[in-house]
Each structure stands twice: as structure tokens, then as C-alpha cells.
Design a binder for these strands. Structure first.
Length: 669
DNA sequence: GGTTAATCAT
């Protein structure tokens, strides 16, 4: 796993101007971190000779009699001469033998018997290492429960901690892995870098990366000065890309380049895809070009990532170019390629072209499936054209494709988001009629849409029904219900939900805490709100700007400008950048507190700090003026908004109109 | 590979 052993890079990334970032903090001490905990992985990497030696009949030691004896008599006494014949075996040979044995699940009982035997006769050193080899092997063969049993028989040491964390991460039990890591840190040990890789990989497995967890992990790695090897750098870069922090991801690509490592294609693809998703197509293209210049042939997934960007910004010509380049390079388009292309035509209102793509798809032997149609439906939903649902459904059946669960989930969400609760419930009924079992996403969508329309009673009924039909609520479900009970100021029920989460072992996430801050803040319970903020910090989650925004907003709406400013300061001292959202709330706070001059000084602050004021900024400023009866100053603000390139929306125009109305009535008097 | 939850102006 040493970075020096990796092949030299086939290409060098030239990155867009992002080199304002500080030098890599994690690479300063790469040669200093060699905790005992790493021995486990070191054995795997470095002791090939010994490892092989243990497989073969050893010139000095024949283990066969011992192993035969142990598999027949797991519970000795062992004849003394048998014990003595192994007294001089060097420890590394035992380590290798156990590792070799436990790599095959059928030999596991023998491996375990051997470890117990060695300990009983005190023939080896570092039993912790032996046990961690066993735990590690159990984790690799999906025997997490057995791994825990084995670990719990003794107090946890760095070696067993690491083996157990690895076992959890490999088996997708992220929560247990994180809890163990936390305990390990509290006990004063640092975790193995391999475990950081395994945990980050497990974090990415469901494709949505929780930024707070990632930030927390990265903070620990930084604090512990964990060495970032090639694998971990790739994992961290990919995770940051998938978490939406593409600048961080680009930075780690740069770090790899600087250390002479080549990023994996999958890492580059994740970055290109994320850049595309953010509409940063020039950068996406630049990184993609680097991939090609390095002599690597991009395949379908890489092209799809680039295509995503062009579709996102509506660059239809560029999107078409990508597809023709794929043809030229004989890279076969897949369902994803086609569905992106269909998205692009759909977004441009070119339904006919989209239909042609569907035909082409069939002609090329890629059968359209529910996935493609759910993408089409989602893009209509995002543009507000929920009526198209029926058309998509018809088109689908023309192609002989039946909707699957996820398609129905999108459809239910589409109707729910546009106030069509009857259509939504009808779709839900049809889904069940067709024998498709609703999942947590289905129920969450149904419940949340009812909450959003203010039908909290129905939402609660659905929450009960969900459980009656045997579908277990997840963290998201609880977050939705906490929000609903909070809106109704049912504080005991909110606590009831939190208690149930805890008894089920569901950890509150950043959204849970933010929701709590929001609902407590909105109803003026600021002490409770701040308590939640503290609880989040002590749970080890990094407070997000969203959370502070919720708090600032709550103070703002009550006209408590001093407290809002204070919350803003605390946010800054936590190292969070002021966002437009937070500053708009601050303007609102001053406005509601009749401090219009200060509201305008926030506008100045935005301009001085290269933050572009938006429609909300100007609308809130106009409101601040109305609040202090300075109607005559409103039109100038509206004017400035237009000049700064903001398109006024309904609310902005309404604000101007009401100011003009007040002016007129003031003139009459 | 697609779907769900929290933050700004009437």
C-alpha cells in the first residue's frame, strides 16, 4: 500500500485554477505514521515469503500433525511431546499459518482452535494480532456477528478495534463502524488508514454521501495525520465529488498529481460527472480532456459524465457532439446515454426528437426500460410540467415497458409536489394493484407531500399505515414526522419520535438536527434550538451553514436582530462561509427590527465580498423600507435589482406594487 | 445508473 510502489502516472492532470488552496495537510507526515495497528495490513503486503512458506510443507516444521490433531480435538489436553515439537516455531510463521487457514471459511474452526491452543501453551506472542487476523477474516466472509462475538471476549485493543471496524465497513454496517471509530478515538487510539478507505467506500455505497460524516472523517484524518495512500486519495476525492464538494475533489486530484500518482478512471469520472451536474461544463471538459491526453480511452461511463454537464446547461449541440464522438470512437451508448439525450430533447421541448432517440435505442438493441422513463418524468417534474406524467405513461406502454417501483415513486412525488394529492393517491393505488410493494421512499414521499399541503392528520395516518404494512420507518421518515409534529408544536410527540429513533439505533443526522433547530426556532423556543445545535456538535457532526441559516432565519422573523447577528458571528467562528441565504436572513432581521440602514450595510458587505445579491436580497430590502414607511426609496431598489441583472419574480413585483400603493394613499392624505 | 427529508423575501 506504499505510495512509492505504485506505477508512475500515465498522465498529469492540469487543473483549472484551484491552486489557491493550502498545501496538503495530510502528506506532511507520511513516514511517521506507523502505529502497531498497521501490522495487520503490513503482514498482508510484505510477508509473502513467510505466507507462502506456511502453505508448503515447511523444511523445519510440519504443521500437518498439529492441524489434524486440533481439528479432531478442539478441546485438548495435547500430548506434551506434540507441544514441544512446535516450541521453536517463530511467531511470524504462526501468524502466516493462521492467516492462511482463516482465509477459507471451512478451516475457520481449526484456525480458532489453533489460536486458543497457542495461547494456552504460550507459544506465540501478540495474541491480539492473532485475534485480529481471525476477526478480519470473519469480516471478509460476511460473518460480522461472529466477529463481534470474538471481539467482545476481550477488551478492545487497537488491533482488534481496527479489525472490527474493517469488518463492519466491509459488511455495510456504517453506523457500527463509525461508533467503533468514535470509541477507539476516545480510548486514545488512532484508526488504520485502510479503515478510512473502507468506511468511505461504505459511505459511497448508496451513492449519496453524507457531507457531515465525510467532513468529520476528514477532520479526524487530518488531526491524526493519517497517511493518504493512493487508494485513500482516490476514495476521498470520489467521496467529496459525490458529496457535492467538487472543489475539494479537484484539490485531491491535484494532490495525487503532485505526488506522482494517477487518479483512477472512476475518480475522474465522478469528478467530471459532478462538475457537469453543477453546470461547470468547461472544467468538466478540461478534466475529461486530461483523461484522454493521458492515453486512457474514455468508455461509456466517462462520456456519460461529460454528457450530463451539457444536458444540464442545455447545450444540445455539444451533447450531440459527444454522442457522435462516441460513435466515432466506437464506444457503445448505454441506457444512461440515451436517457440523458432524451432528457436534453425533453428539456428543449423537442418531444419528437426524444421519440426518435427512443426508436434509435430500440434499433441498437438497448431496450428502453422503466429507468429511462423515470428520468424523463423527473425532468418534466423539475420544470413544473406534471401533466406530462400521463403522456410519459402512455409512451411507456407504447414501448411495452411497465412502470416499476422507482418510476411510481417519481410519479407520486411529481403529483405530490404540485398539489395533486388525488392523482398522487391514485398512482399509489395503481402501484399496489399491480403488485408493486411500496418501499420507504414511497411512504416518505406520500407522508411528506401531505405535510407540505398542511394535511398533518392524514400524514400521521399514513405513518401508522406504513408500519402496519410492515415497512420500517427510516431516518428520513422520522425527519419528516419530526418536522410535521414540530409544525404543530407537538413537542412531546417530537421527543417521542426521537426516543423511538434511539431505541431502534437510528442515529439523528445533520438533517434531523437542522429540522429541530428550525421547528424550535420558528416557534420562538430559542433555548431548545440552541440546545439542538450543541447536541449536534457533541455528536461529532459538523454544524452546517444550513443549520445556522435556520437559526438566523428564526431570529430574523421575530425581529431579533441582535441575536441574529450573534448567530451569524458564531457561524463565522465555526469556520463557515457566509452564504447569500444567511445574509438575506440578516437583512430580514434588520428590516424586521426597523434598522433599515444596517440592512443596506449588509448589501454593501455582499458587494464588497463578491457575493451577488439575488431577487430575495432586493425584495427583502424593499420590505425593510416599507417597514419604516420609506416607500419613496423602494422604486430605486427595484431599479438597482434590474440593473444588477436580477429577474424580478412575482414576489418582487408585489413588493414594489404595495410600496407604490402606500405612496399614493399617503399623498391623498 | 433513476426516486424521499432541513435553511432566505409576500
Amino acid at each position: 500500500m506504499n505510495t512509492l510502489l505504485l506505477p508512475s502516472p500515465p498522465f498529469h492532470l492540469r487543473l483549472p485554477p484551484l491552486h489557491f488552496l493550502p498545501p496538503p495537510p495530510l502528506l506532511r507526515h507520511r513516514h511517521h505514521f506507523h502505529a502497531a495497528s498497521q501490522q495487520l495490513t503490513t503482514i498482508a503486503a510484505d510477508d509473502h515469503d513467510l505466507y507462502d512458506a506456511a502453505l508448503l510443507p515447511n523444511p523445519h516444521y510440519d504443521f500437518a500433525p498439529l492441524l489434524t490433531f486440533l481439528s479432531n480435538h478442539p478441546d485438548p489436553p495435547t500430548p506434551l511431546d506434540l507441544v514441544e515439537s512446535y516450541a521453536a516455531v517463530p511467531a511470524p510463521l504462526w501468524h502466516s499459518l493462521i492467516k492462511n487457514l482463516s482465509s477459507s471459511p471451512s478451516n475457520f474452526p481449526t484456525a480458532y482452535a489453533l489460536v486458543s491452543w497457542l495461547q494456552r501453551h504460550n507459544l506465540c506472542f501478540s495474541y491480539e494480532l492473532l485475534y485480529s487476523i481471525l476477526i478480519n477474516a470473519l469480516g471478509r466472509s460476511e460473518k460480522l456477528y461472529e466477529a463481534f462475538l470474538l471481539a467482545q471476549r476481550r477488551s478492545l485493543t487497537p488491533l482488534t478495534y481496527n479489525a472490527l471496524i474493517g469488518a463492519c465497513a466491509r459488511n455495510g454496517d456504517l453506523e457500527k463502524a463509525l461508533n467503533l471509530m468514535e470509541r477507539m478515538r476516545r480510548d486514545g487510539y488512532q484508526s488504520d488508514y485502510v479503515n478510512y478507505s473502507l468506511i468511505i467506500q461504505s459511505l459511497m455505497r448508496n451513492n449519496i454521501v453524507d457531507v457531515s460524516i465525510l467532513e468529520k472523517l476528514y477532520g479526524e484524518m487530518d488531526a491524526d495525520r493519517i497517511e493518504l495512500d493512493g487508494q485513500l486519495l482516490n476514495d476521498v476525492a470520489t467521496a467529496f465529488a459525490k458529496a457535492g464538494d467538487v472543489d475539494r475533489a479537484l484539490y485531491f486530484l491535484g494532490v495525487m498529481q503532485g505526488s506522482g500518482l494517477s487518479p483512477k478512471t472512476s475518480t475522474v469520472v465522478a469528478v467530471v460527472s459532478e462538475l457537469g451536474g453543477l453546470g461547470r461544463v468547461e472544467e468538466a471538459e478540461a478534466v475529461f480532456e486530461e483523461l484522454k491526453e493521458g492515453g486512457l480511452k474514455p468508455r461509456t461511463r466517462a462520456y456519460n459524465a461529460l454528457l450530463r454537464g451539457y444536458v444540464k446547461v442545455g447545450a444540445l449541440r455539444d451533447a450531440e457532439c459527444v454522442v457522435s464522438e462516441m460513435e466515432r470512437c466506437q464506444v457503445l451508448p448505454d441506457e444512461h446515454t440515451y436517457s440523458l439525450l432524451i432528457d436534453a430533447y425533453g428539456n428543449a421541448g423537442r418531444w419528437e426528437s426524444a421519440r426518435i432517440v427512443l426508436k434509435e435505442m430500440e434499433a441498437n438493441g438497448v431496450k428502453p426500460n422503466s429507468y429511462v422513463f423515470s428520468r424523463i418524468l423527473a425532468s418534466y417534474r423539475d420544470r413544473g410540467e406534471w401533466q406530462r406524467s400521463f403522456q410519459v405513461l402512455k409512451e411507456m406502454s407504447n414501448c411495452g415497458v411497465s412502470p416499476d417501483r422507482q418510476f411510481y415513486n417519481v410519479m407520486i412525488d411529481t403529483f405530490g409536489k404540485y398539489n395533486c394529492l388525488e392523482h398522487m393517491m391514485a398512482a399509489f393505488g395503481k402501484m399496489k394493484e399491480e403488485g408493486i410493494e411500496p418501499d420507504t421512499v414511497t411512504w416518505n414521499t406520500l407522508i411528506d407531500c401531505h405535510c407540505k399541503q398542511g394535511h398533518h392528520g392524514k400524514a400521521e395516518e399514513l405513518f401508522e399505515e406504513m408500519q402496519e404494512t410492515g415497512c420500517s420507518p427510516c431516518t428520513t421518515t422520522y425527519n419528516i414526522m419530526i418536522n410535521s409534529f414540530g409544525a404543530q408544536e407537538r413537542w412531546d410527540d417530537v421527543n417521542g419520535l426521537l426516543g423511538r429513533m434511539q431505541s431502534l439505533g437510528l442515529l439523528p443526522n445533520a438533517i434531523t438536527y437542522t429540522t429541530l433547530v428550525d421547528i424550535y426556532g420558528q416557534s420562538g423556543r430559542f433555548d431548545d434550538a440552541i440546545e439542538c445545535l450543541e447536541a449536534m456538535k457533541s455528536a461529532g457532526l459538523k454544524p452546517s451553514s444550513t443549520m445556522y441559516n435556520a437559526l438566523i432565519n428564526a431570529y430574523a422573523q421575530k425581529g431579533l436582530s441582535e441575536q441574529a447577528v450573534n448567530a451569524f458571528r458564531v457561524m463565522r467562528s465555526d469556520g463557515l462561509k457566509p452564504s447569500i441565504l444567511a445574509l438575506n436572513s440578516l437583512i430580514n432581521a434588520f428590516g424586521e427590527d426597523r434598522r433599515d440602514a444596517e440592512a443596506f450595510s449588509v448589501l454593501q458587505y455582499m458587494k464588497d465580498n463578491n457575493l451577488k445579491p439575488d431577487v430575495v436580497t432586493y425584495t427583502t430590502l424593499m420590505k425593510a423600507l416599507v417597514r419604516v414607511d420609506k416607500y419613496e426609496k423602494v422604486p430605486a431598489v427595484f431599479e438597482e435589482m434590474l440593473l444588477s441583472g436580477c429577474t424580478p419574480d412575482r414576489k418582487a413585483r408585489a413588493m414594489l406594487r404595495s410600496a407604490l400603493r402606500y405612496m399614493k394613499s399617503a399623498l391623498k392624505v
